[in-house]
C-alpha cells in the first residue's frame, strides 16, 4: 500500500460519520443577519462617538478664559489691593475685579467684561458648595489646565491668587507699599535674578530647578510677583504680561 492510498483511506474513515445538519443554510443566514446587526451597531456607536468627540473641544473651549484680548471692565467694586481702608475683599464670583481703586483703567487695564464667563475648566475649581472661581478681571491670561481652589487671598497689603492643575502652578501676588520702587524690593526667590521687562517695566526673573519667578513694579507702590511651577513655567512672561493690576 502506498502512502497516498493510505492517506485517502484514513481521511475517508475519519470523516465517515460527519454530515451537515439540515439547518445549515438557515444557520448561515442567521449568522449573516447577526453580522449585519453587529456592523450597524458598531457604525452607530462610532458615529455617536465622533459626534461626542467633536462636541467636547467646543465645550472645553467655551470654558477657557480669554487670553489677552478682552473687553472693557468696570472698575467699581475693586477688591482692594490698593489703598483700601477696610479689609480687602476677595473677588466676588461673576464680577470683574481689578486691584485698582479709583484710577481709570488706562492703557493696559483689565479688559474683561463683567460678569465674565465662568472660568470653568481652566480657571476655576469648585470650592465645596460654590461654583467655579472666575479669573480676576486684572488677570488677562492664564494657561489652560489650571484652576483656583479658593478666591484670591488678601493679607494686609498683599493679594495672592493661586491656580493649580495638571499643567503646574501659577501664583500671582500683588504687593502694595508706598516704599516699592524697584523689583528688588519684592523679595524674590533666592537665586541670581536676570533682568527682564514686563510691558516696558523693568523686571527681574529668577530661575530655580522647579520654579520660575518674575517681579516688577507696575507703578509706584504696586509690585507684582508671578511664580510658576510645572509645565506652565514656560508661560511665565506671557502670564506676567497679562497681569494688569
Amino acid at each position: 500500500m502506498d502512502l497516498e492510498s493510505e492517506l485517502r483511506r484514513a481521511m475517508a474513515e475519519h470523516t465517515a460519520d460527519a454530515s451537515a445538519p439540515s439547518s445549515l443554510a438557515e444557520d448561515v443566514r442567521h449568522r449573516y443577519r447577526r453580522r449585519v446587526t453587529r456592523i450597524r451597531t458598531t457604525v452607530g456607536a462610532a458615529a455617536a462617538l465622533a459626534v461626542l468627540t467633536a462636541l467636547v473641544p467646543t465645550t472645553y473651549h467655551s470654558f477657557r478664559a480669554d487670553p489677552v484680548s478682552a473687553t472693557k471692565s468696570p472698575t467699581a467694586n475693586v477688591p482692594s489691593v490698593l489703598g483700601s481702608n477696610g479689609p480687602a475683599q476677595p473677588p466676588v464670583p461673576g464680577e470683574s475685579r481689578s486691584p485698582r481703586t479709583s484710577e481709570n483703567p488706562g492703557a493696559g487695564a483689565s479688559q474683561h467684561t463683567s460678569p465674565r464667563s465662568s472660568p470653568g475648566d481652566g480657571h476655576g475649581s469648585n470650592a465645596p458648595g460654590t461654583g467655579p472661581i472666575p479669573l480676576p478681571g486684572w488677570i488677562t491670561y492664564l494657561p489652560p489646565g489650571l484652576g483656583a481652589a479658593q478666591p484670591c487671598a488678601e493679607q494686609g497689603t498683599t493679594t495672592t491668587c493661586r491656580w493649580t492643575g495638571s499643567a503646574g502652578t501659577v501664583e500671582i501676588r500683588v504687593v502694595r507699599s508706598a516704599g516699592l520702587t524697584a523689583p528688588e524690593g519684592l523679595g524674590m526667590l533666592p537665586a541670581m535674578p536676570k533682568p527682564a521687562s514686563v510691558r516696558g517695566h523693568k523686571a527681574l526673573v529668577s530661575e530655580q530647578p522647579a520654579t520660575r519667578q518674575i517681579a516688577w513694579i507696575d507703578r509706584p507702590g504696586v509690585g507684582v510677583i508671578v511664580t510658576t511651577a510645572g509645565s506652565v513655567r514656560d508661560d511665565l512672561l506671557r502670564i506676567a504680561e497679562g497681569v494688569r493690576p
Partner: peptide, 24 residues
C-alpha cells in the same frame, strides 16, 4: 453541505471546529 463538512473537518484537524469553520 456534507461534502464540505468533511473537507472542513480534514482542513481544520478537529471535527468540533469543522461546523463553525464551514458556517463561517
Amino acid at each position: 453541505g456534507t461534502a464540505l463538512t468533511r473537507t472542513a473537518a480534514l482542513l481544520c484537524g478537529a471535527r468540533q471546529d469543522a461546523e463553525d469553520l464551514l458556517q463561517a
